[in-house]
Amino acid sequence: MTAVQGIAAGTRTWIPICPYTDLIPERGAAALVRGRQVAVFRTHDDRLFAVGNRDPFSGAHVMSRGIAGTRGEEPVVAAPMHKQTFSLITGVCLDDPTTALPTYPTRVTNGTVEVSVE
């Protein structure tokens, strides 16, 4: 399922995930992308974000199951285990800025969500 290969130096490899409309707004979905677990979120205003699925506080791969919402203007997700809140934009934990999730670029091509993990 992760068959797409890098094309040329400097070009990103985009991996298709699922139809955009399969994502429930403000709810995450986990994807396995080249062996890496990625949590993809669609926000209420139809923006798309991808962060690491591993909750750095509990070590479990559950970030996609957190509640998404906002803190101030920032779109965020709360870890489902112990509720630490992370920015979907930067991945940084707002409750402990020394901790962060990796973030990944996303795009929608012909209605399909794509993520790049390089």
Binding site: I17, C18, I24, A29, A30, L32, Q37, A60
Partner: peptide
């Protein structure tokens, strides 16, 4: 439909 470990790989259990 939401009861899957991975949306893009519904048959694969979470390896962690």
């Amino acid at each position: 439909r939401r009861f899957v470990s991975f949306v893009n790989a519904p048959g694969i259990p979470d390896p962690s």
